[in-house]
């Protein structure tokens, strides 16, 4: 059993490497966009079905934002809800059967996300890389949980942190905002926030993926034989862990949005808190 830390390269679209995780994240994005247009297109006064779900999520974050930041919090609700929706959708799509197991074998090189992979294909044969899988066929899954890729999670983390600081400058003024960082440790803490944002989400989702794969193939790993029966039993073994992963997917999406909100409230000065100073 080997699960790569990196997303596997599927093909190159010009200079752009299309990996399996970005494919999944596009699917999640597309799904949400279609849902949003369908629901927004025939928006009803009396909600029903998916509209209800969206309204519920929106109201949940609105309640929390106004609780933490007062009335000003309500303008950040779209960002929080988008973060939550994107993360939970891609997490739950990542748990679906076929993600991580549906794919193809590639013989020439260990799949890698970097764009040098394709030109370096010949070198891989000649110079044995540190990865001892090169040379023999390597399994490349077609889909991979979008958040089991550090590119996705760091993209989200950087967006959030940039947003938070832009909002801080907008609300309090540049000099006032920079006054937060008299202590150099504060600057370190800002970077560690990005790291912890990115790695938390990635770690949870990736560890979940490893856990699911390990549990599904536990009999194969122990006995060393791959029988069809072991696969069937593995399916039963993995069921409770699947439920756990659905729960973790929700919790991580929620935590991401909640942390965004609480970091935002550290820097965003509302009128009330300013007069309080």
């Amino acid at each position: 059993m080997h699960i790569s830390l990196k997303p596997e390269l599927l093909f190159n679209l010009g200079p752009f490497p299309v990996t399996n995780s970005i494919l999944s994240s596009w699917i999640a994005t597309l799904l949400l966009i279609v849902l949003a247009i369908v629901v927004g297109g025939n928006f009803k006064r009396i909600p029903s079905g998916i509209q209800h779900v969206f309204e519920m999520i929106y109201e949940m974050f609105e309640g929390m934002a106004t609780e933490v930041m007062g009335k000003a919090g309500s303008k950040f609700v779209p960002l929080l809800a988008t973060l939550f929706l994107f993360i939970i959708t891609s997490n739950w799509l990542g748990v679906l059967p076929g993600v991580g197991s549906l794919g193809f074998y590639e013989t020439h090189v260990a799949a890698s996300s970097d764009s040098h992979a394709a030109p370096a294909a010949k070198d891989a044969h000649a110079a044995p890389a540190k990865d001892d899988h090169s040379g023999e066929p390597v399994f490349v899954p077609l889909f991979r949980g979008a958040n089991a890729d550090l590119n996705t999670t760091f993209a989200l983390a950087i967006i959030v942190m940039v947003f938070i600081h832009v909002m801080g400058i907008k609300s309090a003024g540049l000099s006032h905002h920079l006054a937060h960082f008299k202590n150099p440790l504060e600057i370190v803490s800002e970077f560690s926030k990005v790291l912890s944002f990115g790695f938390r989400l990635f770690g949870n989702v990736f560890a979940g993926e490893v856990l699911l794969t390990a549990m599904a193939s536990i009999l194969v790993i122990i006995t060393g034989k791959s029988l069809l029966l072991y696969g069937v039993i593995g399916g039963f073994i993995v069921t409770p862990f699947l439920m756990l992963e659905f729960f973790v997917g929700f919790i991580q999406a929620f935590v991401f949005a909640m942390l965004t909100l609480s970091f935002l409230s550290l820097f965003y000065k509302t009128e009330n808190s300013e007069s309080h100073h």
Partner: peptide, 22 residues
């Protein structure tokens, strides 16, 4: 770790589009 600036920016842009549309 598999971090690729191109992919990072692509993800950021796709999230931005998602945010805008939603």
């Amino acid at each position: 770790l598999g971090i690729n600036p191109v992919l990072l920016i692509a993800q950021a842009i796709s999230f931005g589009i998602l945010y805008y549309v939603l």
